[in-house]
Design a protein around this nucleic acid. Sequence first.
DNA 1: GTGGTCTAGACCACG
DNA 2: GTGGTCTAGACCACA
Lengths: 124, 124, 124, 124
Amino acid sequence: MFQIDPLSRTPVYEQIVAQCEEYVLLGILSSGDKLPSVRQLSLELAINPNTIQKAYLELDRRKLVTSVPGRGVFVSTEAFEAISRDKKKNLSEIERLAGELKAAGVPLDEALGAVRKAYEGGER
Amino acid sequence: MFQIDPLSRTPVYEQIVAQCEEYVLLGILSSGDKLPSVRQLSLELAINPNTIQKAYLELDRRKLVTSVPGRGVFVSTEAFEAISRDKKKNLSEIERLAGELKAAGVPLDEALGAVRKAYEGGER
Amino acid sequence: MFQIDPLSRTPVYEQIVAQCEEYVLLGILSSGDKLPSVRQLSLELAINPNTIQKAYLELDRRKLVTSVPGRGVFVSTEAFEAISRDKKKNLSEIERLAGELKAAGVPLDEALGAVRKAYEGGER
Amino acid sequence: MFQIDPLSRTPVYEQIVAQCEEYVLLGILSSGDKLPSVRQLSLELAINPNTIQKAYLELDRRKLVTSVPGRGVFVSTEAFEAISRDKKKNLSEIERLAGELKAAGVPLDEALGAVRKAYEGGER
DNA sequence: GTGGTCTAGACCACG
DNA sequence: GTGGTCTAGACCACA
């Protein structure tokens, strides 16, 4: 279910968090779905349980997931909205990057093109 | 000349690199200009010389600067183009972020708006 | 009779205890009333019998209930007073929370308002 | 500086978080103050560094503290407001507890008295 | 030396 | 079996 690259510079637990976000956005994970247990995923990925735990803790903190002791970790009912809320930060990040592009002499059309490229394709 | 925030979470050496890039883009620094010596800047900013050294090394690696042993560190002749080249990465980064926005249900116009916002306004 | 939320972070057995307390306070349960058997409630709520047992044990410990071996579990004669006694702890808890509010600069009126809000309204 | 009770039911890392909050509210810790390093505090309290780390991570998450790698952990400039914001939750908690008191037959005056008791005394 | 991440393995409360 | 907490010790980037 999850695929991690232990050689990547981004921490393993963040990779898990990011993939989980992606799966929710893609509809692969939906509200109420049960995530793999800490132990099971730790075996599956050959990763220490603590690291999985840390990832799940972060997902819980972001309201993407509710972990109920003794039963498991579940995608929260507000998961999708929670992500959408978080992703709004991307707008200011894009603004910042575009500002740098402008200063570097990259024409506006090229910057707009990158955005359009991302949006073209499937409806979703 | 440089202003660093020691409480920021972005490493000090990266702050120096980023400001140096900015100064070149703004024309404050031009080809041939001499940067402060490691020793002088380390005193001025009350920062460990190693950190300054690391920043200058990174700037050299990015072809923004050429260090002439015994004479000092100078803005390279190709500095501006070097930065512009680097900033092209922003385009793919913007594309990635925009892709996430799309998945999160943010309308295209809003994403394009962020880019336009960065480009509108005076010369800068 | 009982409604439990398996996704809540408060343990299931505590949810049962709390609802039982509430029902006594509201007069829905009175002295001498028989509670559902462990087996029956476990089926009804689709919950492990051990969990029901634990809830009833806790209720017994709090003198809210007396379990008669072979006959069942009954609301004790002193149930209402037992709860009232327990709830006195709320007073010191409120005092503690109010102390924090004071330190955080929240005006007294606001804290008093929260209490009054809880008391105003119909009989309940 | 910190005092923890390893036998308490509340996790050690939460005890540290709570004490840190308290110290900020009392003015013992102010913006910019440096907290003990993870290692130092771990030695001082005879507690595993990971546990300290977890406490500091939580404090960072609550905007009470900013940890800057390589330099240390510092009380954030917005620490006081961050706590005040969090403590507003106490109001609804008080309301909930007061609701229980009402149901248990505790007179309003007694509940109000608990709040007043917390507020009387020093100005602050 | 500092914080950040990770591993290995343990105990607990809960179900 | 499940998540939550904790210990013991390691390596890394950064200052």
